[in-house]
Amino acid sequence: MQQNITQLNVRVPQEIKDFLQEGAKKDERSLNSHIVKIFKTLKEQSKEAKA
């Protein structure tokens, strides 16, 4: 089963990239996987806030 995946290019300050990379390393995830996890969490929190 193929997921609907799209590429997103974004520029962030180096300190934000470093912060994200540290979190990814702690979670034993790739940087991409870690960022997707954060976005999914934000999406769920947004749904809960609207309810």
Rank of each mutant, 00 (worst) to 15 (best):
M1Q: 10
Q2V: 02
Q2I: 01
Q3F: 04
Q3W: 04
I5G: 00
I5P: 06
T6D: 13
Q7K: 13
Q7I: 07
L8A: 10
N9M: 06
V10W: 00
V10H: 00
V10D: 03
R11I: 05
R11Y: 11
R11E: 06
R11D: 08
R11Q: 09
R11G: 03
V12P: 02
V12I: 10
V12N: 03
P13K: 03
P13C: 02
P13D: 06
P13V: 02
Q14N: 08
E15I: 04
E15L: 05
I16G: 04
I16S: 06
I16R: 06
K17N: 12
K17T: 02
K17A: 12
K17M: 08
D18T: 08
D18N: 09
F19I: 05
F19D: 07
F19H: 09
Q21C: 12
E22V: 08
G23K: 04
A24Q: 03
A24G: 11
A24R: 00
A24C: 06
K25I: 03
K25F: 10
K26A: 15
K26E: 14
K26N: 15
K26M: 13
D27T: 02
D27R: 07
D27L: 02
E28C: 06
R29V: 00
R29A: 05
S30Y: 03
S30R: 01
S30V: 04
L31K: 02
L31C: 05
L31M: 04
L31W: 02
N32R: 03
N32P: 01
N32E: 11
S33T: 05
S33C: 05
S33L: 02
S33H: 05
S33G: 11
V36I: 14
K37R: 15
I38E: 14
F39S: 02
F39M: 09
T41M: 07
L42S: 07
L42W: 09
L42C: 09
L42T: 06
K43L: 14
K43F: 12
E44V: 12
E44H: 12
E44M: 09
Q45N: 15
S46M: 12
S46N: 15
S46E: 15
S46Q: 15
K47V: 08
K47P: 00
K47R: 14
E48M: 10
E48A: 15
E48R: 12
A49G: 08
A49M: 11
A49W: 10
K50P: 02
K50I: 09
A51W: 09
A51C: 09
A51S: 14
A51R: 10
